[in-house]
Nucleic acid binder design. Structure first.
Length: 812
RNA sequence: GCCGAAGUGGCGGAACUGGCAGACGCACAGGACUUAAAAUCCUGCGGCCCAUAAAGCCGUACCGGUUCGAUCCCGGUCUUCGGCACCA
């Protein structure tokens, strides 16, 4: 039967019936945890991106299975989130209804893809059985001081009507809807990811992750070494610390700047300047992120009327506020050294503040102000003449003795804001009581179930707040009437631990069994989009470390090895989107050619980690290739394998290609280089045809090679290979067969082509027996007729021979 | 502005650790089979030079360097993409 979706269906049914892809818990020693980032259940059918990620990672997993691994390959859904809720606002269809309907469709589709998922371990984050444990983790973090509430100016998306984490604000706009983000002062829940900033950095080097991704995390965490230095108020009534990386410029401080939001501002502002300061603070608050971030914008600020004392030289310097100082970084206070900092220079020039040079350039260096490089100190008391690097040390040491300064490391990373003023998410398991404050929901009362009957009026207030029977409850501590926290958790919280739940997804006693997941994790291969570099991947690492420190697991990192698939773009080279009208649906291609042809095309047509614009030119080629394989199998199946026949030159050549293919496919697929894997398979098919047309003297070799071909193809064309394997009389299933091994001896050809170069230019190619040493190669090369001619009248200076490759003759 | 990655035929893309650039395909051209077409099979296919071929020369964004030899290493330039962006 020629390959088509009929074959797909036939084998999907058989695989299902025979439980072929069931993970074997008893064989946990040989486990291999292969995971794709789970997906959001959107309404439409699987798109090319799903296929590219899931289909080809499945190919990798299938190869691993054939190599003897007990592959754990689960699948599930990141089911909470805004799209379902926005859809409900538009259409009135409840998020729960649309989400679960979508999940059913997607499960169906994923099954049709023919991937080796073990659905027994499915996880759906919106199931109460799952989010019960999301809430439990929240409580554990709270217990350990890693979840806390604070009032802070937070990112607010006016369109999504919710707050956002820093990671979800891209260029001052909402990552989801692209609208401008503003600041709001709100009391919100945060996770203390900053507690792990250093460890999150320290563990990066040993991870088998794309360097680019590690770099993104490194930048995002943003470690910065410097010092905190104490400035006293001139009137002695207050003091504050500044963070600086340039303690060497301390003698050049001519003013200090506080962030407008800094608490100190109220206390220190003098009556005379109060109204100006208030006005400025109002103005600063109203700006959108985009306005505030614009570096082209002129700096603004106002004087508070207060003065501070420079701890090294007693200088009295004015205290200003300006919104170029960020409240959330360091201490929210900055010492300004206009001579040696561009920002301060600009500000000082504008407001006519003094500029004092304390660093000179080394000999011959242009040190026109602002001079921001390291140099030699000047006008700095006993530090004059000392280098910047040295002075940074010495000045802080001196301050330290006086209790006025210390070394300090700051991180750019901020704590993770997890509250969301939306409905479709895991409720925050906290009760607010007038008497007792914020009281965690007792574990026995979990899950705090999301009520079904809720109004989704998007007005900035949590929908749950308007649901009387939900929001009103009693305080677990004192029993008096109290209110539930009206917010839900960021969906990234749900996805920060799902990989821990998969191996133990039915556990109703615990989130997961510690002993068991210590055996099952870490994930050995994790595959998903690069867009999660600074969000999901960072959060999941944080959760893993926090749970480890609480004793719930004993590994440090969740994902040992990470691969990002590339993006398949629209045919126009742009990202596929409905609004651009350049989306390509896999469905027609699949119904026409079968899912294996589609999958193989994805494998062959792109460099996996690069992706690229869609083009269907190559699909025909794969369909043609499938036909070639089918005809080959037809021939081979009719042959009597017991007829061995001779083993001569042709046989040796076929065997060479066969072993090259085994080696190539094994090594290339291992590192997700599927395009060259398919290329090696094509070469093998070409070689079989060549052998066939040359007379095919050895049936056994021919048949065995075809059997190997099918095994090599199986991961990439699972249905087709299973079918042809059966046709060849192979035992069910091809996926229970051993992955072929290459024979090194067969990779050595009798004769190899050796290049002869003259001064690095190729002049001749000669066939030589393989295995010759350098001297023998040189001898052969020098005797070659053409080479002899070329050497006439020249002196040989040197000969370089590379065994198996070339001889380079250097002449004058 | 800072940091990082990439740039290879008409196209998708190969090339292990510095050793024959362009594997495998697509497209195109020619041929075989066919009444014809489709399908299939075979051959060619970086550029220049050339009637053709041989031979030769050029060629991995650009300029230069190291080396017997550079797509690969080093310095500089350009372009594209990604990250960060008043983080003191």
């Amino acid at each position: 039967m020629a390959y088509s979706t009929k074959i797909d269906e036939k084998w999907q049914k058989k695989w299902e019936e025979t439980g072929l892809y069931k993970f074997v818990p008893e064989d946990v020693d040989k486990k291999l945890y292969c995971l794709e980032m789970f997906s959001y259940p959107s309404g439409a059918n699987l798109h090319i991106g799903h296929w590219y990620n899931y289909g080809l990672t499945d190919s990798w997993a299938r190869m691993k299975r054939m190599q003897g691994w007990n592959v754990f390959h689960p699948q599930g859904f990141d089911a909470f989130g805004l799209p379902a809720e926005n859809y409900a606002i538009q259409t009135g269809i409840h998020p729960m209804d649309s989400t679960y309907a979508n999940i059913r469709t997607m499960e169906e589709q994923l099954r049709k893809m023919g991937a080796s998922f073990d659905w027994d371990y499915e996880v759906i984050t919106s199931d109460p059985e799952y989010y019960k444990w999301t809430q439990w983790i929240f409580l554990k973090l709270y217990e350990h001081g890693l979840a806390y509430r604070k009032k802070a100016p937070v990112n607010w998306c006016p369109s999504c009507k919710t707050v956002l984490a820093n990671e979800q604000v891209v260029d001052g706009a909402c990552e989801r809807c692209k609208n401008e983000v503003t600041k709001k002062d709100l009391t919100q829940w945060f996770f203390k990811i900053t507690e792990y900033a250093q460890e999150l950095l320290d563990c990066l080097p040993q991870l088998d992750w794309p360097e680019k991704t590690k770099k993104i995390q490194q930048n995002w965490i943003g470690r910065s070494e410097g010092a905190e230095i104490v400035f006293e108020g001139a009137d002695g009534s207050f003091s504050f610390k500044v963070f600086t990386t340039r303690a060497d410029t301390l003698y050049g401080v001519t003013y200090v700047v506080l962030a407008p939001e800094n608490e100190l501002v109220d206390r220190i502002t003098s009556a005379e300047y109060r109204s100006a300061v208030e006005q400025y603070r109002e103005h600063a608050k109203k700006q959108t992120e985009i306005e505030r971030l614009s570096t082209a914008r002129e700096k603004t600020g106002v004087f508070t009327g207060a003065y501070a004392i420079n701890p090294v030289n007693g200088d009295k310097v004015p205290i200003w506020i300006a919104d170029y100082v960020l409240a959330g970084y360091g201490t929210g206070c900055v010492m300004a050294v206009p001579a040696h900092d561009e920002r301060d220079y600009e500000f000082a020039t504008k407001y006519k503040l003094p500029i004092k040079r304390v660093i000179k350039g080394e000999e011959g260096v242009d040190d026109a102000l602002p001079f921001i490089d390291d140099g030699i100190l000047t006008d700095s008391d006993e530090f004059t003449g000392v280098s910047s690097a040295q002075a940074r040390n010495d000045i802080v040491k001196k301050l330290n003795r006086q209790g006025k300064g210390e070394r300090k490391i700051n991180y750019r990373l901020r704590d993770w804001l997890v509250s969301r003023q939306r409905y479709w998410g895991a409720p925050i398991p906290v009760i607010h009581c007038d008497e007792c404050g914020a009281v965690p929901v007792p574990e026995k009362d979990l899950p705090v179930e999301l009520p079904y009957n809720v109004e989704f009026t998007p007005d900035g207030e949590s929908p749950l707040a308007k649901c009387e029977e939900y929001i009103n409850t009693t305080c677990p501590k004192c029993g008096k009437p109290a209110k539930r926290d009206p917010d839900t958790l960021d969906t990234f919280v749900c996805s920060s631990w799902y990989f821990l739940r998969y191996p133990d997804n039915r556990n109703s006693e615990k989130a997961f069994d510690t002993k068991w997941i210590n055996k099952m994790l870490p994930v050995d291969k994790y595959v998903g989009g690069a867009e999660h570099a600074a969000m999901h991947l960072l959060y999941a690492r944080f959760f893993t470390k926090a749970l480890r420190d609480m004793g719930y697991l004993d590994f440090d990192e969740p994902f040992l090895s990470l691969v990002h698939q590339g993006t398949i773009l629209g045919p126009d080279g742009n990202r596929m989107s409905k609004s651009r009208g350049n989306t390509i649906s896999p469905d027609d291609y699949i119904s026409e050619n079968g899912s294996d042809v589609f999958r193989m095309y994805l494998a062959f047509g792109f460099a996996y980690t690069e992706g690229g614009p869609w083009s269907d030119e190559g699909i025909k080629a794969i369909a043609r290739f499938v036909g070639r394989v089918e005809r080959l199998v037809e021939t081979a199946a009719a042959l009597d394998r017991s007829v061995e026949g001779e083993y001569g030159r042709e046989e040796k050549e076929l065997d060479f290609v066969r072993n090259t293919a085994i080696k190539g496919v094994t090594e290339d697929a291992e590192r997700f280089q599927f395009n060259t894997s398919i290329a090696r398979i094509m070469e093998l098919v070409n070689a079989l045809y060549k052998y066939e047309s040359a007379g095919r003297g050895n049936n056994r070799l021919f048949v065995d090679t075809v059997m190997d071909l099918l095994k090599l193809m199986a991961p990439f064309a699972p249905h087709l290979s299973e079918e042809l394997w059966e046709e060849m009389g192979g035992p069910y299933s091809i996926f229970n067969q051993k992955w072929p091994q290459w024979n090194e001896d067969a990779l050595v050809r009798d004769e190899v082509e050796i290049v002869v170069q003259l001064n690095g230019k190729i002049r001749e190619k000669i066939m030589l027996p393989s295995g010759l040493d350098k001297a023998q190669m040189e001898e052969h090369a020098m005797q070659n007729e053409k080479v002899v001619k070329l050497l006439e009248g020249r002196t040989v200076v040197k000969v370089i021979a590379v065994p198996g490759r070339l001889v380079n003759i250097v002449v004058k």
